[in-house]
């Protein structure tokens, strides 16, 4: 953040000695982490490194076999799930919606943890929905069925649904995976807006390292179910760490737009001889912008 204000959020999220997995297969064996409050944390790593597993455990979708996830210092498994849902919102990787559901209806269902059978829908619920839809810019399509929307619009609608929960913590599992580049940036910019406007704590899993550096305040790099490096982007994204985590040789240069670390994969078929020998500033900028545009996304390799 540019102007470091005191975070007004009090909620905290952490994991302590966490072991978790699916069925008999344990993915994460012993992991402890503190999610910085009021910041954007990005979890990165190769496929099957356990980054989604960690996110799901933080969201209490997976029950740890050992260790605990701590929400406000209390074990998240001990807190009633509906109470958790008023503090922590979640956007799964590929959420499903009933056929024909409209934008406003879907976003409205985000109010579930805030309403009771006895205390039915009220004006404050309409207000929360309106606010969530305004900040995600989907108010103008309130009556449209979500099947008719573009991928980027649909993702914004799902984010709006999570926002309608009015939680201070928001977890997102690969929110940009099925989107084209424009929509990826649209969603990531939106997340920054949401973080800045209300000091929301945001945790997301991303594949693209350059986007992770650009949008994350705090990065967590994972390999084989353990955290390899953690800290701000320039601490985490170094040539050594990327080599270790992804097994890919890269050069890390400053992002010409943001100054954050930018990863340029080397690959097996590229050598210095193939590229123009003159390393003019123009050529460097061109290569950099190509990488920034996702031409060389590490996840594609």
């Amino acid at each position: 953040m540019e102007n470091p204000v005191e975070p007004v959020t009090q909620h905290s999220l952490a994991a302590d000695g966490l072991a978790v997995g699916y069925d008999q297969r344990e993915i994460i064996h012993d992991l402890s982490v503190r999610i910085p409050t009021g910041k954007i944390t990005v979890i990165v790593g190769a496929n099957a490194c356990g980054k989604s597993t960690l996110l799901k455990a933080l969201a209490r979708l997976l029950k740890p076999s050992r260790g605990t996830v701590l929400l406000d210092g209390k074990s998240i498994q001990q807190i009633p799930t509906r109470e958790v849902a008023t503090k922590l919102g979640l956007l799964p990787q590929s959420p499903t919606a009933p056929e024909g559901i409209t934008v406003a209806d879907l976003v409205g269902r985000g109010r579930y943890p805030r309403t009771r059978w006895i205390r039915q829908w009220s004006r404050s619920d309409d207000e929360a929905v309106a606010e969530a839809m305004t900040s995600t810019d989907v108010l103008s399509i309130a009556d449209r069925p979500i099947d008719e929307l573009s991928g980027g619009q649909r993702q914004r609608v799902w984010i709006a649904m999570a926002l309608a929960q009015e939680t201070d913590i928001l977890l997102l599992d690969e929110p940009t995976t099925f989107l084209d580049l424009t929509h990826q940036f649209e969603v990531l910019d939106l997340l920054v807006d949401l973080n800045r406007s209300e000091d929301r704590t945001i945790v997301l899993v991303l594949h693209d390292l350059n986007q992770a550096c650009r949008f994350g305040d705090h990065l967590i790099a994972m390999k084989d179910g353990a955290i390899v490096a953690e800290g701000n982007p320039s601490q985490v994204i170094t040539e050594d760490v990327v080599q270790d985590v992804f097994g890919l040789a890269v050069k890390v240069v400053p992002d010409p737009v943001a100054g954050t670390p930018m990863v340029v994969p080397i690959g097996r078929h590229t050598s210095a001889q193939d590229t123009p020998t003159r390393t003019s500033p123009v050529a460097a900028a061109l290569a950099a912008s190509a990488a920034a545009n996702g031409v060389c996304r590490p996840s594609d390799r």
Binding site: K56, A59, R60, L61, P80, T81, R82, E83, V84, A85, T86, G89, L90, L91, P92, P95, T96, A97, P98, L106, R109, G110, Y112, P113, A162, Q165
Partner: peptide, 12 residues
């Protein structure tokens, strides 16, 4: 109806 993961997330 929103799927198990979203439903968990909403506190169901």
């Amino acid at each position: 109806q929103l799927g198990d993961e979203t439903a968990y997330g909403l506190g169901l």
